[in-house]
Design a protein around this nucleic acid. Structure first.
Length: 126
DNA sequence: CAGGTGACTCTTT
DNA sequence: GAAAGAGCCACCT
């Protein structure tokens, strides 16, 4: 049955977000992220142009998007969970590990291996 | 309309 | 290598 685990309140404000073209664009990209793969906010936004907006879109959490596959960039080639909520961050990490993504001792993710960006495609394939 | 905030990123000191 | 500042875009008050 369709049980909704902690379904967020569908307020008009939230609906308005989904209608936004920018949000739709972000959701479309996030949805394209393959399993066992991660993408940085900058990659989803196209660069550091609207990286913040990407986080906003994920925060909405009203669309069936694998927000867990969207991570922040800690260092060049290394990603990391940038969620503000410690609970949500831990959950994301667990979900990613569950899909096969391995974390570094410093909580970093090797984008060269799990990066879903076109630039990392070659590295990811290797 | 203007100000403030944020799951970001980059450059410079 | 760490810290601070600036840039950017969208949403909320």
């Amino acid at each position: 049955m369709c049980r909704r685990p902690a379904a967020p309140p569908m307020t008009k404000s939230i609906v308005k977000k989904v209608v936004s073209d920018a949000y739709r664009r972000i959701y479309a990209v996030a949805r394209k992220i393959p399993r066992d793969r991660v993408m940085t906010y900058g990659a989803v936004a196209g660069l550091a142009r609207g990286a913040r907006v990407v986080g906003y879109a994920m925060n909405a959490g009203l669309v069936p998007v694998p927000w867990q596959r969207v991570v922040g960039l800690k260092r060049r080639g290394v990603g990391r969970v940038s969620i503000k909520d410690p609970v949500g961050g831990a959950r994301q990490r667990q979900l990613l590990e569950r899909e096969g993504v391995r974390f570094d001792g410093d909580g970093g993710i090797s984008l060269a291996r799990y990066g879903a960006g076109p630039e990392h495609a070659a590295a990811a394939r290797a």
